[in-house]
Amino acid sequence: MRAGGGGIVVRFTLNGREVEVTTRPNATLLDLLRNELKILSVRRGCETGECGMCTVLVDGLPVRSCLMLAPQVDGRSVTTVEGVGDPERLHPVQEAFVEAGAVQCGFCTPAMVLTAKALLDRDPNPDERTVKEAILGVLCRCTGYAKIVRAVRLAAERVAGGVRE
């Protein structure tokens, strides 16, 4: 397939729903989510792959949406924090973030929650080092990370019923 300066149709699954959007080939996944689909929980941060604010899950794994071209998600499954829980039924990770006080300004929170969810989906019982390695790609300038790490381990405890020391 090829597409020039005009439009390109991208079909993918967004938070469990099939979507079809016409975008431009030079749009990043971040541009597509924010500009076309108005999903503003996906933050525009450094746009150079350093800060991790634009994290989304693609086929369950965390990626930098600022470094992925929009046409590259064609046929794939994208999850933003809207697909993780809702105010009435929070995901255990979200509950734990509230309970542990792991949210301050909130700018990095969607990226942190998505990263934590992806981690617990593949490792329900991560030790502290594993949690720190997983969130290393998401900067938080408020919390100093201690409460975020605690929240992820609290969520693991809830989900798996125990954590390693």
Binding site: M1, R2, A3, G4, G5, I8, R24, P25, N26, A27, T28, D31, L69, P71, D74
Partner: peptide
């Protein structure tokens, strides 16, 4: 947005 280009997916 990035500078414009033509996208190909072989």
């Amino acid at each position: 947005m990035l500078p414009e280009f033509e996208y190909h997916r072989p």
